[in-house]
């Protein structure tokens, strides 16, 4: 599970991208990204997650997003990407 913290914007998304690339290199069966400690995300964060999702699909990794607040969820909805990702309310809602 990856649990980023703080704002994910153009300044911080490169670091987030590197973390996710490192995880994807291990080709896990499942990748959970817990966003409950992310207060804000812009389109660079969204692009990082789209890139991660593409790699995960190629690796046959199941990628799940959880813990989004309303502000973070809003950008997924504005970009119509809320249907592209598997999104669940909290980490407790993920089936084992």
């Amino acid at each position: 599970m990856v649990s980023p913290e703080g704002d994910i914007d153009m300044h911080r998304s490169p670091e987030f991208r590197n973390v996710l690339r490192g995880v994807n290199e291990k080709k896990p069966k499942r990748l959970i990204i817990n966003l409950e400690k992310v207060g804000y995300m812009d389109s660079s964060g969204l692009a990082t997650l789209v890139e991660c999702m593409r790699t995960a699909k190629n690796n046959k990794t199941e990628m799940i997003l959880c813990g989004m607040n309303d502000r973070v969820r809003a950008i997924f909805e504005i970009a119509r990407l809320d249907q592209f990702f598997i999104i669940v309310p909290t980490v407790d809602d993920i089936a084992v």
Binding site: D9, M10, Y40, D42, S43, S44, D70, R71, A74, I75, I78
Partner: peptide
Amino acid sequence: DDLQCSKIALAVDEALCNIIR
């Protein structure tokens, strides 16, 4: 409201990112 404020800030953020990038 808080959500609208966040969206307005997002629009400004995106505009600034486009200029920088």
